[in-house]
Nucleic acid binder design. Structure first.
Lengths: 190, 190, 190, 190
DNA sequence: GGCTAACCGAGACGGTACGTCCAGTCTTGCT
DNA sequence: AGCAAGACTGGACGTACCGTCTCGGTTAGCC
């Protein structure tokens, strides 16, 4: 049993420094400019230490999201009584948030990380867009309960379509013309 | 006027060779593995020749899409009379196509190219997903005419939401659970 | 014989422009920085025109020397009556001239051109140091005639040794310690 | 004091491999054909490793000379009793050595390296021709002691003139006509 | 005056080397 | 055993020139 904890334990300090440095570099210059070299230099750690604990840049990003260091803006789905108004507000809120260069860049960072490492993509998305998904589904269920949404509607489908719309919007950077209201209108079956 | 055609004219042969090599490399190994070095070697051209005409890898991809060398599978929206069935079929067709590793890899290539070069993103998307958008919008208009869709529906919004869903699906690689039918169901207001 | 002068004759204007540009570039930055590209750009000529008439940079340098565009400072061997004083003065004059960065750089240019193209070396040296050689030999003959030099002395040997000393001095850039006077003293057999 | 030996120490093996490769390439094709690229490939090292330790090709050559990997043929000045005969033999020996293409090429390599990098020239010459200089000066002092050379003769001047003559001879590749014997004859004051 | 030949400038072509940057791995001594 | 430091091989980057090759256009001699 003596073998279990031999040697120096992992330095939590180094781990934090690396994650913080990675977060700063991503927000400053974007995920595609991110290099292990730069993370090591900025965090004052050795490169080996990074490779020892993370096997890819995407996994560092995953950790950042997990720890809330790198997070899409919290965007709760309010409950004012009107489901349509609440969803529209949510989509408008996200759209407005994407107008901020930092948020848009983070969103693109997420997409880049996911798109060139399919293995990690699910993890990344469940961590970052998961809360949105969950919030939307819950609000939809509430809407069903209050009779504002037909029973047959698949809440997951609506959530996926909404988030997919947000992603598409982030990538095309406002080239699209359809408004949040019209999307929600469609999704709710009006 | 004498300035127009001075010097040796651009070699169309070299241009084709470069684009063909780039296409082959993308389909073989994915966009993120693509290097200028490899394109030059495979096409038998000098690196400078590539830099002379394209300032980024994304622009090469744009040319490939423009020329139809690199294209998402054509997926026409059929008109069988039932709008819902036709859209569901379309979405199922795309989803099936994405099950092919080559197509999924191309989709991710497109997303990667777009996500780390916002300037080119719009161009890339309008060239690659534009046909889908157009096909959907037309079918929706037809649906309106035949009374299967309410007049108030924004066709662009439905098209964007459908394509966004496809993108999201490509990125999360089947982790999602909602079916094409349920998405279409929602989008059509059932 | 009709073939002799058909076609457009060589442009003397272009030839002059090329040589002038080459000379300026050599004096500005040294022979080893000289590029055909730069000569063409500066002279407003096409690169092919240069290659058509000169097959190497060394040959351009040879032309420059031939035409007196690029020439070591004229340093006549005076005849004051004293052979020793005259030769010492000559060597001191050359040594002083080499203190000028332009002249030293030209000397090094000559040496570089010669050292990486053995074929052209003889031509280059006979054109550039030839006048020195000739001047020294003539003065030595005069010295023999006036009884200041033994009949057995080989004038070419003295000239070569003097010029070799100058070359060595140019290359070692004043690191040497022996004075012109002592060298002449030795060479004259004092 | 802790700063002295941090990080992985320099690899002596890589250093040797680089110098050996450089030496082989110089003797095979001459200094002006030498490229960093080729040294790296031949030595099996990364290019960066070369740039890390040497900032110019001339400095690699300097190291080669320092370490005796690249050396002009040893040509001791014998002492048979006759100073004139010994110096003549020395000069003939060098002249013969220069007839060997390898030696001549090395000599030109040295001159090229020195001529396009004035800063390094002194270092290069003191390392390569220094032994000649020293040997000549010593033999001349011996000659003075035995009464074969006048006391007033500057030994450094004679040594410089002899070596300068050798350099000039190497550059002009046998175009000269004066014989070793006549040069020595002159230098000794006969 | 038209024809042919050789020149001219410009500038694209396939290459090669440059010097830099980063990846991922491998030693060091220190903790 | 982890850690910072920093050297190692390897390989892509974007740039600069090389020497060659085409263009349109010019300038001569010759029919």
């Amino acid at each position: 049993m003596a073998e279990a904890t031999r040697g120096r334990p992992r330095s939590e300090k180094a781990r934090r420094a690396i994650l913080t440095a990675a977060r700063d570099l991503i927000t400053e210059s974007g995920y595609s400019e991110l290099t292990i070299q730069a993370i090591a230099a900025r965090s004052g750690s050795g490169r080996q230490t990074i490779y020892r604990w993370w096997s890819s840049k995407a996994l560092i990003a995953a950790d950042l999201i997990l720890e809330g260091e790198l997070t899409l803006p919290a965007q709760p789905v309010r409950d004012t009584g009107s489901l349509e108004r609440d969803l529209t507000e949510w989509l408008e809120g996200i759209a407005n948030a994407m107008a901020d260069a930092n948020v848009a860049s983070l969103m693109r960072a997420l997409i880049t990380a996911a798109s060139d490492d399919p293995e990690e993509a699910k993890l990344l998305y469940s961590m970052s867009t998961g809360p949105y998904h969950q919030g939307i589904v819950e609000r939809l269920k509430q809407g069903k309960a209050s009779g504002q949404l037909r029973e047959s509607t698949d809440e997951n489908a609506v959530a996926d379509a909404l988030i997919g719309t947000v992603l598409f919007g982030a990538l095309t950077a406002g080239a699209r013309t359809s408004t949040p209201a019209s999307v929600v209108n469609v999704l709710m079956g009006r």
